[in-house]
């Protein structure tokens, strides 16, 4: 369990994190979203005890970060931003070092190391210096290090940055498999990642917590949530569509010719639209219901905060 109360971090005159409060329960996979410099990494650094808060408190498993940081750190696996590691070591040496620090011994140590090597597929580069590895492999070494002791709490700062789409998919699967009874907090710039792996989203902008709910609640905030988009094979009279009951607004994309109908809040307009199309014999060749557009919600939410 993580309880964060009125967390604030100041660097001189600059306040990086302002009065943020939230709590995270077992089984939560939290996605931290926010523009660069919004305070995501700073918050993570405080959760892991690297930075101490200027104000407020963090309680993890009933221990305060102020008094028991080292105890708390035993139950956390952390991938810092940029996945730093000791470049002169090979991944195998590095994992042995981390295993020792994590108090793993004997057969258990060997088993755990072999398990994570397999989980993040490091087998082919085990004896090369980490400095010489590609960005993707470095990131995976960082991940392996974070999950090595099978921690209750996993905090990953941009775990998929620099990975190719296959590797991203693999990391997401890894997180999903890990997270059944654990706490996972990941920060990311990739919005689809949040809907793919998280069951909770927090948006931080200019140091303030702007949103804290499920990914679907975030989608509902989108103007495009349940909007109907259609395209016609040749131009015809579409003025009737905007007049339909429940349709709040209509938008025509000049480049693609796509027409988007925005519903009034809580309204379901799909059946009305299809009826209208059939009645007026509109030459529709594409029609779909939008799920909501995260990038647009993200922009709306972080711009007002960041301005």
């Amino acid at each position: 369990m993580i309880y964060v109360n009125n967390l604030t971090k100041r660097f001189g005159n600059f306040t990086a994190v302002k009065d943020v409060s939230f709590n995270v329960q077992r089984g939560d996979v939290v996605g931290f979203l926010g523009p660069n410099g919004a305070g995501k990494s700073t918050t993570m650094k405080m959760l892991t005890g690297f930075l101490s808060p200027s104000d407020g408190d963090i309680l993890i498993n009933d221990l305060s970060i102020h008094d028991d940081a080292k105890k708390i750190q035993q139950s956390i696996g952390y991938l810092p931003e940029g996945a730093p590691a000791y470049g002169d070591m090979s991944p195998l040496q590095f994992l042995h070092f981390i295993a020792k620090v994590r108090g793993l011994k004997g057969q258990e140590k060997i088993d755990r190391i072999n398990k994570v090597i397999q989980q993040v597929e490091l087998g082919s580069v085990l004896d090369r210096p980490i400095d010489n590895l590609s960005k993707g492999f470095k990131r995976r070494v960082g991940l392996a290090q974070a999950i090595l002791h099978d921690p209750d709490i996993l905090i990953l700062d941009e775990p998929t940055d620099g990975l190719d789409p296959n590797q991203k998919h693999q990391v997401r699967e890894l997180i999903q498999n890990l997270s059944k009874d654990k706490i996972v907090i990941i920060s990311t710039h990739i919005l689809e990642e949040v809907t793919a792996v998280c069951n909770r989203v927090m948006i931080i902008s200019a140091g303030e917590l702007m949103f804290d709910d499920t990914p679907s609640a975030l989608l509902k905030k989108s103007r495009y949530y349940k909007a109907v988009t259609l395209h016609m094979s040749y131009s015809s009279d579409i003025s009737g569509l905007a007049e339909l009951p429940g349709v709040d607004d209509m938008d025509v994309d000049k480049n693609t010719g796509r027409v988007t109908l925005f519903p009034e809040p809580e309204a379901d307009i799909l059946h009305l639209v299809t009826e209208h199309i059939q009645r007026c014999r509109l030459p529709v060749d594409t029609l779909f219901v939008e799920q909501g557009r995260l990038d647009q919600v993200f922009r709306d939410m972080t711009k007002e905060g960041g301005a």
Partner: peptide, 14 residues
């Protein structure tokens, strides 16, 4: 410089 200090200081090492 390499940022590994963040790793070192968040391991259970004083």
């Amino acid at each position: 410089k390499s940022g590994s200090i963040e790793l070192l200081m968040t391991l259970p090492i004083t």
